[in-house]
């Protein structure tokens, strides 16, 4: 399954990137972690995002569109970076996420969200195919 892992923003990350020693060490640890993800075939994509002061929001209400300039309040609801991982299940995603070095100087949070997959679109599976698959499975189990 494919998951997106969000690195949540913090007040520090929203301020930009003062290159402290602590940050350099974190980047080093993060580099190693990323390498591990790549070597395990788990990493599909990933990148960091600039603080929300560089961002814009488009608010919809009926036909109206309002553009709101960043920065946005509620730093912890914002995203500072993301990965896309290919994992077997959510347990594996959690196990990898726990291995991640703390991405921020203070307390911080990762959020894992699975993508919709083909199997989630049940209409692709006709009753005949489902029945046939079940029959095959029963047959295999019986042998």
């Amino acid at each position: 399954m494919r998951v997106m892992v969000f690195v949540k923003a913090t007040e520090d990350s929203e301020k930009g990137l003062p290159p402290t020693t602590e940050m350099t060490e974190m980047f080093e640890a993060m580099g190693k972690f990323n390498e591990e993800l790549v070597n395990a075939g788990v990493m599909v994509d990933g990148d960091g995002l600039k603080p929300s002061s560089f961002g814009k929001r488009i608010a919809f209400d009926g036909a109206s569109r309002t553009v709101i300039d960043g920065p946005f309040a509620e730093a912890r609801e914002l995203v500072a970076g993301y990965w896309v991982w290919e994992v077997k299940d959510m347990d594996e995603a959690v196990a990898w996420a726990k291995r991640c070095p703390n991405p921020m100087p203070g307390p911080s949070e990762l959020e894992i969200r699975p993508f919709y997959e083909m199997e989630d679109f049940g209409d692709a599976m006709t009753p005949e195919i489902a029945a046939h698959e079940q029959m095959l499975r029963d047959k295999l189990a019986g042998e």
């Binding site: 070597n39 075939g41 990493m43 290919e86 195919i129 046939h132 698959e133 095959l136």
Partner: peptide
């Protein structure tokens, strides 16, 4: 009966990435 089996593809892609 089914045309594709995505989990096998995913497994092969993972091996390829490794």
């Amino acid at each position: 009966p089914s045309l594709v089996r995505p989990p096998l593809c995913a497994e092969a892609q993972r091996l390829g990435r490794i």
